[in-house]
Structure formats: C-alpha cells, structure tokens
Nucleic acid binder design. Structure first.
Lengths: 232, 232
DNA sequence: ATCATGTGTTAAGAAGTGTTAATCGATTGG
DNA sequence: CCAATCGATTAACACTTCTTAACACATGAT
C-alpha cells in the first residue's frame, strides 16, 4: 500500500521550486514540478496525483484559477496553497476555492511536511473520522448536509452552499444559541456589517423552508444570535 | 448541588484580565486569573478547572505552548483561545493544538458567555444548571421559557429575551424576594444605575402582561427587590 | 414635615433584526 | 457572443428590542 505519494508542485520561481522538489523527494515523495499554471493543469490532466502544492502568485494562470480548474476535475484531491506573506485577502479567497490548507512563505520544510501529512491523512479517511454529522433530523425534516438537501415527507428542497452551511451550524447548536459572530466567522470568514446582513437574509430563507413543519423554528435572540428549536 | 464552574483565565493584559474576571464572576463563574503562561500552568496543576480561557499573545509562555502543556495533562478540558484581530495564521495553528473554540478581541461579554456555555455543554457536563425548568405555571398563565411565550386561556404573548429571562428568574423565586442585585448580575451582568432603571422598565412591562390574571402580582419590596406572588 | 433616595411608568432614542427586492458576478446554455 | 439563470450581496424599509430620559410618586431617615 505504501506506494510513493505523487505530488504536483506548481511554483513559478524555478530556484525555489527545484529546492522544494528535492527536499520533498528526500522525504519520500514523487514530485512533479511545473513553473506555471497552464503547465500545471496539463500535468494534472495527464497524471494521477495524490496532492497538489500550488503557488498563488504565478504568471499565465494564477494559483486560484488553477485550483478552480483542478477542482472541476477532481473535487476531492488535497490542495495546499503556497502564499506570500500578508495576503489575508487572498487566503480567504483561496479557501473559498476549496483548498485544504495553505502555508505562508517563507516556511520550513518541517512545517510543510507536517501539513502535507495532515492533509493526506484527512483525505485518506474521507468519512470515517469526520466527527461532524452528515445527516440531521429537524422535526419532520431530514437534512442531508453532503447532498445539501432538506426533505420533508416527499418534497425535497435543494439548498445552496451557504444555506446548507448555516443550517448545519444551527443543527449542531440545536436548542442552544448560535452566536452571530460564531456563524459569521465559520461561514463568512469575517464579522463585517454586510456579512451580518447577508446572514440575516439567509436566516430568512431558511425560515421560509422550515415553515413546512410548524414545530420547527429559528428564533432570533436579540443581540446574541439564533436558536433552532423543535417544539414537541 | 450547583457548584460554581471554575475557570482558569490566562491573560497578560492585567487591566483587561481583571475586568473580564469581574464580568465572569458576576455571571456566576469562579475565575482564577494568571498574567502569564507559566503562572497559568502552575495554577492549572494546582487546582481543578472546568474550562480554560487562554490569551494567545503572552510573554514567557505563549498561549499555544500553554495549551499544549495543558493538553498533556488533561486532553478533555474545554479550552478557548482569546486572539487578537487578523491572526488567521495563529488561529489555524491553534486549532491543531486542539482548542474547542476561539474568540477574537475585541469581543462582547455576551458572546464570550455564549461560547463558554456551548463549549461546556459540548464537553458533556450538562449538569451546570441544565435542570432548570423550561415551563412554569403562574396562576392562570403558562410560561414557556424556551419559546419565550406567556399563555393565558388562548391568547399568547411573545416575550423578548430580557423579559423572558427576568420572568424566569421571578418564577424561580416565586413567593420569595428576588434581590435587585441578583437579577442585575444574572441578566445584565453588572449592577450599574442604568441597568437598574432598565430592569424597572422591564418589571413594568411584565406587570402589564400579567394583568390578564388579577391573582398574579409582581410586588416591589423597597430597597430589596421584587417578589412574584399568586393569590389564590 | 422635609429631604434624599428609590421606584413606577411612559415616551423618546439608538441600535439591532426581518424581510423583500434590486443588484452584482459567475456560470450555463443557446 | 449574448441571454438566461443562479447564488450571494447590498439596499431599502418597517419593525422590535433595549436603553436612556423624564417626571410623578413612594419610602424611610432625620
């Protein structure tokens, strides 16, 4: 089982890229190096990889775009961004694309190895130790978080990603107050005024869906947050 | 029965730390404050705690290191980080250490309290005061604390969170005097003049609702507090 | 009785929330 | 390439919640 892990490394700084490649090889990885996004995508299409390491700043095709392209072809492959310092904005954007981790230059090989291990481990056990439930029952509803579908009786309501994330958080806090800022941080990644308003809009949508069972209610708790309650 | 929860607070900014300690105390926690990581670890070793609140940025021993040390001795104790704004990097690192939640300064006491509650509950110690009744009968009324509704005959009165909290406290002290300061501490978290006046306004509102049953009365006890009585 | 202080009540104000609709941006399908 | 569509954000407006202010009145000490 212990075949060499195949890593796709996309990094436009050749010097740095080669050094990194060498280090990773020494640690038992099979590393293919590409120096721009297009080459990276081509390589990705040609071979099977276990993990992608993608520099964010690149000519021709930047890291985020590449990540998007890769995700379209394989939505599960582990993906780690290499970012320059102080790119908070980019980081957030990157996370939305769906990378599994990122690491800020300069970094130590040790640190990178740790993250690679962590990410591979996570990917290796897709569901087994996912400690977050994938299915909730809310009164008469069944909510499948992976399919993002809310079912009651025989009618299905497809949820958008944000609707689904928010409902999931509410479910995980059932009967407790889900603080506004907790939800904002976990789903929107910031606590700005507009994100807050956006969240209110989503709450409003969820309430509309949940009206199908009058026992289920999302209560607003002034100045605190929201609470999902099921009245028996 | 209901012993006070013991919180270890490690925060190097003494001013902030003391204020936080005071607030948490007013909300019914027993809080020990340490101003650096080493002291924090010593305190942790000496006493039994139910939860740790750890500032990330500290001299001598930073929050992550402390968290690691604590985890080595008790891998289950709930742990919440206090972080400065824009520390995305730190946050991720922190999660790996295994904290249960983090909160970004500046934060409101309300929010911190909600998270403490959530984390304590998750930690499987629902005995804090989980056996609080959720339903009271007051004369002809039925008061549902979770739905925050006061029902008489077939007319429902929705209560705001503060109205509900206050009425609940009164119910739990039925026929006894609920001291002003007790109520202020538990609901407002301070004993200031304005909070007091605010409370009086809420009492006034509750009296209005309770007029629907002439047997029910909130009596004011000058200089002491309030007493909820039901005349049969 | 007189005075400082505490309480009851109502109303004004500031901030937070619920909801609908307009807008933006990305993706899709012709 | 454009139109159509979808998800998400922003704008707008009404409404709720809580605090603060204001004023009347009650209480207890002196």
């Amino acid at each position: 089982m212990s075949e060499l892990k195949h890593i796709l490394l996309v990094e436009d700084d050749t010097n740095f890229g080669v050094i990194l490649q060498e280090h990773l090889r020494l640690h038992g990885f099979n590393v293919e190096l590409c120096t721009d996004g297009e080459a990276g995508l081509n390589a990705f299409i040609k071979s099977e990889f276990d993990l992608c390491l993608v520099d964010v700043m690149m000519p021709k095709k930047d890291g985020f775009t590449l990540a998007n392209d890769i995700r379209q072809r394989d939505e599960d492959i582990p993906l780690i961004f290499l970012t320059a310092r102080s790119m908070t904005e980019d980081k957030i954007k990157g996370f939305k694309v769906g990378c599994d981790d990122y690491i800020t230059k300069p970094f130590s090989i040790e640190e990178l190895l740790l993250r690679i291990q962590a990410v591979l481990k996570r990917a290796g056990k897709p569901e087994s130790e996912a400690d977050e439930p994938t299915r909730f029952t809310i009164g008469g509803f069944i909510f499948d978080t992976t399919r993002q579908v809310l079912t009651i009786k025989d009618s299905e309501q497809k949820l958008t990603p944000k609707e689904s994330d928010l409902l999931k958080l509410l479910c995980m806090h059932e009967n407790q107050i889900l603080p506004r800022n907790t939800a904002l941080r976990k789903i929107w990644g910031d606590e700005s005024y507009f994100s807050g308003r956006s969240m209110d809009v989503f709450i409003s949508k969820l309430r509309k869906y949940l009206k199908a069972d009058p026992h289920v209610e999302i209560m607003g708790v002034h100045g605190k947050g929201f609470r999902l309650v099921v009245n028996k």
